[in-house]
Each structure stands twice: as C-alpha cells, then as structure tokens.
Amino acid sequence: MGFYWSFLTVLLLLGITAPCALGFGFLGAMAARSKFFVFSLFGHAYIAIVRGVPEIAFFMFFVIALDQFLEWSRHKILCPDWSEPIRQGNDFVVCQAAKLPLSSAPQWIHESYGFTLAVFTFAIVFGAFSANVLFGAMRAVPYAQQETAYAYGMTSSQVFWRITVPQMWVYALPGLGNLWMVLIKATPLLFLLGVEDIVYWARELGGSKTARFTDYPHPDWRMWYFLALLVFYLMFTRVSEVVLDRLMKRLTHGQATAAGEAQRRAEA
C-alpha cells in the first residue's frame, strides 16, 4: 500500500510546491525590480546564490538548517533561563520543550513535519529559479505599454498590477513550463530528504525477499520497480509537455509576438 500512497505524496508535493515556488518567485522578482537598493540587492542575491550551487547540496543544507533555525528560535523563546551553550562540541542541544516536533508527538506529526520542511526547501530553491524567469518576463513587456499607462496618469503600483503583470505571463510561460518539467524531475530527490517517497518504496519492496520474512518471496526486483518509475516519469513529462503546448497556443492568441502573428496569419 505504501508504494501507491507514495505516488500521491509526489503529486501532493508538486501540487503544493508549484504555487509556493511561484509565490516566492514573484516576491523575488518584485524585490529584484525594486528601486529601493536593499530590496533589489536582496532579490538579486537570492537569485544568484541559489542558482550557482548544485541543487541537492541546497536541499540537504536547507532541511537541517531550517530545522535547527526553528529549534533555536523556539529555544530562545520557550527556555529563556537555559544557561548551557547550544552547540556543545559536535552536538546541537536545545531544551526539551523546544524540540521540533515534540518527542511526545504521534508518528504522523513527525512525518508531516519532515514533509513540510521538504516542501519549504523545494519552494525556496524553485522560487529562485522562477524569480529569474519572472524577472525576465516583466522586463520583456514592451516599455511603451507602461509609458502609455503612466501618460494616462496611473500610479506605478497601478501600472505594475494592471499593465505589466497581466501581460508578462505569455513571456514567462516557456520558462515556467521548463521549470515545471525540472520540478517533476527533481521530485525523486525527496528520498534524500528522508521522506518515504516512491524511490524509498521501490528500494524496499524490490529488494530480495525470502519466504521466512514475508508472504511474497521473490528475487531482486528492484530493477523492474525502477523501470516502472522511469516509465511513470516519462509519461508524466510527456503529458505535461502536451498540456503546456496547448496552453501556450491559447495564451499567444492575439498577442503581439511572432507566434501570435503566425496564428493570425494561419487563420486569415
């Protein structure tokens, strides 16, 4: 059963991460565009640092770092009269009440805490990628459009929300579509973050079983399990590709771009 649930885990992760990452990306792009120097620096640094380093290094770093950060801040709030240092040699020690999740918590809380950390990590990393895409897309909106809006007396936040944002999606979609594919292909890395996902179950169930331990003795089937995963991902990316193509066609309809022009010609 766990094996089939784990497919749902992957889909759930995609379903939660994609909007979160888009939100992070939007904030990042807005920060990078900002005229206020500190925000702009922060936005650019966010984009540059996350993209320059191998992603799994980031995944592994963030999960521990976030965990320790949360425990450290709870420690500061909940146990103010704790005198010993937190880092004792090679150990990270916080008081009992600050442990996350609490050691008395039931099993499902432990599992969902791990999953939440994983989602948050994915959102941070993919937020940086999508911030880059959205930043480019916002700049690709023809400047004359914004100038016209200013000439009509709109304030800059009105221009941003009413002119730039609605028009940028068509420029952002190829990049975001690419990111979606990349996100699908990054989901097996969940395994490295300690979530029991499809890779975990494929290894567990496929491994050789003898009659003594289980009801289903079989030799080493891990190869076939992983082949099934491979096919699952291939179908998933293929379907996404087709859907994204359709969506792109819808969005370019009537746009002043080369593809939109080609559609108009074909119809005329």
Partner: peptide, 22 residues
C-alpha cells in the same frame, strides 16, 4: 533523447545500477 531528457537522472542512476547488478 526523449528517454534521457524525460526522466529524472536520479532514477536513471538507480535503474542502471540495478540493471548492471542483475
């Protein structure tokens, strides 16, 4: 091109390892 670009490298590693093993 489709097979190697359409599936995660991570799964490809796993699959290849167990393929070579058998």
């Amino acid at each position: 091109i489709f097979i190697f670009r359409g599936s995660p490298l991570f799964i490809q590693f796993f699959f290849a390892y167990f393929l070579f093993l058998s």
